[in-house]
Design a protein around this nucleic acid. Structure first.
Length: 279
DNA sequence: CGATCTACCTGATGGC
DNA sequence: TGCCATCAGGTAGATC
């Protein structure tokens, strides 16, 4: 599922291939995708505009337009942004399609329709896209210092994984990367955040930087259901490096056969960890 | 404050 | 082969 690294790969694709190109035509095929505003608002807001910048905060993409407006895209569970020749067959669930100069289409594809496209007035962002203002620091876009992380952890008693997943505390981590980061840092998911030792906080900080950087470099994670792809339709490769996520029953890559990765229920979903080397 | 649950949705998968 | 149940998970909001 798209988390920080996947969204960052898409953002870089936009920066490289879409910024600077004029949007000639806009089609909205599914109202639900533009439910925040309306199809008309998205069509009039984007038609004729040129994207001037592609930014990211956590899992949110925010693109600036030369008409003074901005567009927010959230992929949620199954959303994809894909650039393709206008002449190529459109996949199912291409709910918003922008035709760009040069006969290419930027398609927002989203089978499960959790995702959203919102065209908004940056001056009114606090009312039109209020969630952007409630996001915690993004460890890649903003950087996250040791001091910030220590403070974040020390002031909460919740389970550390719940805190890392909370976008208001820290923006960008989802179920895959929290598990990966916690394994690298050798911290159990259910430790109270404020019970981590100074050593563990340091390990967590380093793990977060390393895992996110490696995942971005590998083009993100594309799971078996192939939901996530980059802007040009390319699959990620970081799933090959997953240590724990989706690996229940496999030997722990650190314990080397002395223990196996287990799966435990967590918040109605799953968490994967090694009970031996994560404490 | 935090823990837990629900809703939103479709496609893939497993059991029978 | 078909039918049904289950699972996947980002986020907001309700409830205790």
């Amino acid at each position: 599922m798209p988390e920080l690294p996947e969204v960052e790969v898409v953002r870089r694709g936009l920066e490289l291939h879409v910024v600077g190109r004029r949007i000639e035509r806009v089609e909205v095929g599914r109202e639900r995708t533009v439910r925040r505003t309306s199809a008309a608002a998205v069509v009039t807001g984007l038609t004729g505009a040129t994207m001037t910048a592609a930014r990211r905060r956590g899992k949110y993409l925010v693109c600036d337009l030369d008409n003074g407006r901005a567009v927010m895209v959230h992929l949620r569970m199954s959303g994809q942004l894909v650039l393709a020749p206008a002449s190529s067959p459109r996949p199912s669930h291409a709910h918003v399609v922008l035709t760009l100069t040069g006969d290419q289409e930027l398609r927002f594809v989203d089978p499960r329709t959790f995702g959203e496209v919102v065209v908004f007035d940056p001056g009114r962002a606090d009312v039109e896209v209020p969630e952007l203002g409630r996001l915690g620091p993004d460890p890649v876009a903003d950087g996250l210092t040791m001091r910030q992380l220590r403070r974040l952890l020390a002031t909460r008693s919740r389970q550390v994984k719940a805190l890392l997943l909370d976008q208001h505390a820290l923006a960008g981590l989802g179920n895959i990367y929290t598990d990966e980061v916690l394994h690298v840092a050798r911290v159990r998911y259910d430790r109270p955040a404020n019970a981590l030792t100074g050593r563990q906080v340091g390990a967590l900080h380093r793990a977060m930087e390393a895992v996110l950087a490696d995942a971005i470099a590998a083009g993100g994670s594309t799971l078996g259901d192939a939901q996530y792809v980059g802007l040009s339709g390319e699959a990620g490769r970081y799933q090959e490096q997953h240590r724990v996520y989706g690996r229940a029953g496999s030997p722990c890559p650190r314990c080397r056969g002395r223990n196996v990765i287990v799966r435990a229920p967590f918040g109605g979903r799953s968490t994967f960890f090694c009970a031996r080397c994560q404490r």
